[in-house]
């Protein structure tokens, strides 16, 4: 009897192990195939448009008249680029300085305050950022524009960039803190013992060492900023035009998809064009993502 019980117990254990391992493997393959599934889906959907037009025709034309079959993505791409780069230009110095402060100078209680602050900033939904943008940033931008004698409603590229910069700050800052923390303490000890001041050590030793990490954190910030939808959509104005200044309204790619989704189903070409917009987003974001990560890995190997 006993000898019968033992194998059945063993079999049950084995079965449990096998079945859970099988399910784990399924999840593993699912995640590995996910980017390719996404890419193929978007490619198939946007291939309809490629049948009629060349790629450069779509990218470099600025005429957007979907009802007469003209799809020029230039205004959207330029708006996206403007907003992304201005927002990173605002966020980058703030993040860098804060990261240095938090890792090198800050007292314990500052860290205790800043950790929840960063976490909460990262957790606030994008629509709330959009509401905040409408309440505070848009009127403010309108006022700033009037100082320069420019008439602007405030719904502009600049407003979108400011809102977006606050959104990417927690993301970039977290990576930068990680980068600065991972530098071995011996480096700064050696520098300090040679008579350098604390700031000189940070500037000439730590930041030089962290440089690839810093660049890649900005790259990841760009990839995050490029795809942000709702918050930007709410404050950027959404006018199809090639932006000529930061106080003008823009129309970034994600907003294009979000605004037109309901109505496009009736026209297959329109549907295809919006999928192409999603594809461009996917590719640009992935490019920056891969580039930044490659930089980190390449550098880590060398050191």
């Amino acid at each position: 009897m006993k000898s019968l019980l033992v194998p059945s117990f063993k079999i049950r254990r084995n079965l449990r192990d096998k079945s859970s391992s099988f399910w784990m493997k399924c999840c593993y393959y699912l995640v590995l195939s996910m980017p390719f599934i996404l890419l193929t889906g978007l490619l198939i959907k946007s291939s309809l448009l490629f049948g009629e037009k060349t790629f450069s025709e779509l990218i470099f034309s600025s005429e957007w008249k979907p009802l007469s079959g003209k799809f020029g993505f230039l205004p959207f791409i330029l708006s996206s680029l403007w907003i992304t780069f201005i927002s990173i230009a605002i966020a980058a110095p703030v993040c860098l300085l804060t990261a240095i402060y938090l890792t090198q100078y800050a007292k314990r209680f500052v860290l205790k305050v800043m950790h929840p602050v960063i976490d909460i900033l990262a957790g606030i939904p994008s629509v709330i950022y959009g509401v905040w943008g409408i309440i505070i940033i848009v009127p403010f931008v309108s006022k700033v524009a009037s100082w320069f004698n420019i008439h602007s409603s405030g719904y502009s590229i600049l407003a979108g960039s400011v809102v977006l910069s606050v959104m990417v700050i927690p993301f970039v800052l977290n990576i930068l803190i990680e980068v600065y923390r991972s530098i071995p303490i011996e480096l700064s000890e050696a520098s300090l013992s040679l008579g350098a001041t604390k700031w000189e050590t940070i500037k000439k030793v730590l930041t030089r060492k962290a440089f690839p990490g810093i660049i890649s954190s900005f790259g990841l910030g760009i990839s995050r900023a490029f795809g942000e939808t709702i918050a930007v959509l709410m404050v950027v104005g959404n006018v199809v035009q090639i932006p000529k200044g930061i106080f003008q309204a823009g129309y970034p790619l994600p907003a294009l998809i979000a605004n037109n989704y309901g109505e496009m189903l009736s026209i297959p070409m329109y549907d295809s064009a919006l999928m192409l917009a999603a594809l461009i987003l996917f590719i640009v974001v992935t490019f920056f993502n891969l580039g930044s990560r490659y930089l980190i890995m390449h550098y880590e190997k060398k050191v």
Binding site: S223, T229, I257, V285, T286, N289
Partner: peptide, 10 residues
Amino acid sequence: GIPSIVYGAF
């Protein structure tokens, strides 16, 4: 890193 709007469209 892929924006949620792309997931939405997909």
